[in-house]
Design a protein around this nucleic acid. Sequence first.
DNA 1: ATACTTACTTACAAAATGTAAGAAGATGAC
DNA 2: GTCATCTTCTTACATTTTGTAAGTAAGTAT
Lengths: 109, 109
Amino acid sequence: MVDTKLCPKFESAFEILGKRWTGLIIKALLSGCHRFGDMSEMIPQMSDRMLVERLKELESAGIVKRTVYPETPVRIEYKLTDKGKDLGKVMDQVQEWADKWVEPPKKEK
Amino acid sequence: MVDTKLCPKFESAFEILGKRWTGLIIKALLSGCHRFGDMSEMIPQMSDRMLVERLKELESAGIVKRTVYPETPVRIEYKLTDKGKDLGKVMDQVQEWADKWVEPPKKEK
DNA sequence: ATACTTACTTACAAAATGTAAGAAGATGAC
DNA sequence: GTCATCTTCTTACATTTTGTAAGTAAGTAT
């Protein structure tokens, strides 16, 4: 064993990233999704309830900014802050790893 | 909105990384921890029960290899496979992001 | 026989997530 | 006016995951 403890900042980062859906939501935002409905469509396995909850968490973590446009019907935009955009590098590495190591799911047949 | 779906491989990667403790366990393994007790010590907030469960998942995902040394008392080593070691780059990016953006927790005065 | 070590198991409670229905606020159709 | 529509949530309740703490197994050593 080398160290006796992990870096607290690293741990803190994974309190966010290590929650279900968070990574996918950030990826969706990086891909240009900005609206609730867009994200909900892009990640259909996730329920709206979870999306609401995660977006609130990401907002209070300073990763996402929520803006209301009082049009009709109301439009609400979720955008990554600088802090959030900086997660792009993390996501790129995840994508690279996934491309190299994840074999496509062989569910059917 | 740009795309209509996320990359399935990316999603698959986050089925693992997006679980509580997984990131910290991989980081511990990258830091030179190899034994159950070491990891349990390095991540004291996590219970043994969870460590067992996550290690099994990581093993069946091909990220960790478990080896038994029938000494006394028994020694069991957990090591990252090549697939697992390749997550080092992801973890490095997380660390970089955390160093830049995570402010140290201001719990107690 | 008892104790000691490591690596788990098990049972049960608590918390997170899934599911599905509903609600609010502004509008337009009838 | 009343009904329906759209989007973004909210609520209630079931299911699943995680937390907590005690216990087990195998191999020594005392």
